[in-house]
Design a protein around this nucleic acid. Structure first.
Lengths: 346, 346
DNA sequence: CTAGAACGCTTAAACGATTAATCATGTCCG
DNA sequence: CGGACATGATTAATCGTTTAAGCGTTCTAG
């Protein structure tokens, strides 16, 4: 105990002095780079850990020009999807030896630029950007991984929202549903647009499909207005495919509120498998993303780009490409969806 | 255009050379610390911005020993509350000139320690910790702000969960409810325990109150089991006070599923005002936290501590104290709560 | 037998900013 | 007129790490 408290912050020099070698040797031994005899290397390693040596990030960063930090910028941190993303990214980055600095653009395009600038100033080596609707990331001086949806130009890696939609569509179709309403927030979102496309493809030709955009409806009838779903059911609609779990929740509760039994009278499905999908009654059938994989690919692509970029000082800095661009989604069937019931049709 | 592209990465030396002064003067001028004539200072500042000078974080960090980064560690990033917290903290930190590095402990106590270590190694100057249930943060070598609930020992600042409970309790009581069930996840959570205490105090003596802990019930009857709320209503319960919005959602949907009208037959309330609280039907009455203020206080306390700590090299490093420990919560009344109806009692 | 390679380690120069100490000018006042 | 002083700028050391270059010594091969 008393032995360990004499040196407050062990640096390379302390280890070097303790063993009577030079700091360069210590550095080489710990990084395994230069030429150091196995015995000395072992000694250095053991005394380093004995002294509780922790390399100074600042010193290293200054010398190597590498901060070991990635930036994660999100359109809106308040997005319920964010926890999943952040957790997965942090984990993937940590595995690759990187830290994650967060940047919040609060849904504002201008603030997104500011947030990116702040991160750059902090010396991030790469950026993971979940772009604000339709935003295009220009060259910012460091590699950027864009995570949106495969159809977005410049996208690096993302869940395959289109195919997720297709899976959900064919699932609903296979349950016998022939009149389905797709409920979404805004058609401007690339992700939602892709999901719609996939859903329609999955439904097949025999399904009559309508679209309901909440943002548009609320613009007319006011925030939090009724979506008029009960009437839809009366008119023969048997399933509602929401484009997000948040929307699905709204649909589900509005239907229940009107005494419509889910799934007996109408099926409801969502996207994303957010936390509450499993706690509501009935449990929500939804599409789950493999965020861990998306994060792994995004971080991997970024790290690769970081490693190769220094070779081309004036080289093309921009959005990087991953080995795999689209990650499959997985259908999670719970109780909110079921076979279409007899006599439900018009 | 052509003039700005000759110097790839402007450092102090470049500015110094351009104006024929020393780097020290440039540094002094930009930081406003040393003695520099107003004219020269102005020149320096203008050419600095003209050249697009950005101070090297690494260089500064190495010299000053200050990284300008705070660490945010959470018990579980997947917690739906996280977006609010992260957003508020990032904003508060950015205002104070700090960046925020995230650390996820994935609900595991051991990983919490690892996450903290990683952040320390990255040179964070201070930590904001939302502790895992009952975890005690030992001295970690830098100031720590603990955000949990005022009753937690070592807590720095937090929403006043007890008083939030009290407000909600007296609100429900004022609506005429006399038989109320409190529904929570686990009594081990300090936050939930405080909310329970406050609720009971707010109800007053005339209310008959029961507690329902979901974790305990699920341990017996299995994950996602029914909470048996419909029977409670039959037996005369007129209100359910959930200890979080997630739980409230579960309660609300289970009641609706059983054909119970909310709020006519039973009122449901939650805590936290999460995103979905406003989109469900009926809209959820809940208590909103002032996360921006909590974050502001936490970051402020941390920054103060960072500024004063160097004075006491061996001084007391531990959880810091804020100027205000408890931040009031605000009652948000929506449609899920209402006057108790006649004939609802036993 | 000796030129050169291989080895193991040390020297020393960066990286970019901060800051104490120092130095060169004037200015002011006795 | 000369010494003290304030002012404005410079010099040089320093933070901790990495890494190219250098330098003896030993080993190998022609």
């Amino acid at each position: 105990m008393s032995a360990t408290m004499k040196s407050p912050k062990p640096k390379l020099a302390v280890i070097a002095q303790t063993l009577g070698v030079s700091v360069a040797t210590v550095s080489n031994a710990l990084s395994g780079k230069g030429r150091v005899s196995p015995e000395v290397a072992e000694q250095i390693r053991s005394t380093a850990s004995a002294l509780g040596y922790v390399p100074s990030v600042a010193g290293r960063a200054l010398r190597t020009g590498r901060s070991g930090v990635l930036g994660l910028v999100l359109p809106d941190i308040a997005n319920p999807l964010f926890p999943q993303i952040a957790q997965a990214m942090e984990h993937a980055a940590a595995s690759a030896g990187y830290g994650v600095l967060i940047g919040d653009s609060r849904g504002d395009v201008e603030m997104q630029t500011q947030a990116i600038d702040r991160l750059i100033e902090r010396g991030v080596e790469g950026l993971i950007v979940i772009p604000r609707r339709g935003t295009r990331i220009l060259d910012v001086g460091c590699p950027v991984a864009v995570v949106d949806t495969p159809s977005t130009p410049g996208n690096t890696v993302a869940s395959d929202h289109w195919d997720g939609g297709r899976q959900m569509g064919s699932y609903l179709s296979s349950l016998g549903h022939r009149r389905i309403v797709i409920v979404g927030g805004s058609p401007l979102s690339n992700v939602q647009a892709d999901r719609v496309g996939g859903l329609k493809a999955g439904f097949g030709a025999s399904v009559q499909v309508d679209l309901l955009w909440i943002e548009k409806l609320e613009a007319e009838k006011g925030q939090g207005c009724s979506l008029g779903l009960a009437e839809q059911v009366e008119q023969g609609v048997t399933a509602f495919a929401a484009l997000s779990d948040l929307t699905a929740l709204r649909v589900l509760t509005e239907l229940q509120r009107h005494g419509i039994n889910v799934p007996d009278q109408a099926s409801v499905t969502g996207f994303d498998d957010l936390v509450w999908a499993s706690v509501v009654t009935p449990g929500l059938t939804t599409m789950r993303m493999d965020m861990a994989r998306v994060a792994h690919l995004a971080v991997g692509a970024l790290v690769d780009a970081i490693a190769t970029v220094p070779r081309f000082p004036g080289g093309q800095l921009g959005t990087v490409v991953a080995e795999q661009e689209r990650v499959p989604m997985e259908l999670v069937v719970r109780q909110s969806s079921g076979q279409v019931q007899r006599g439900g049709g018009a």
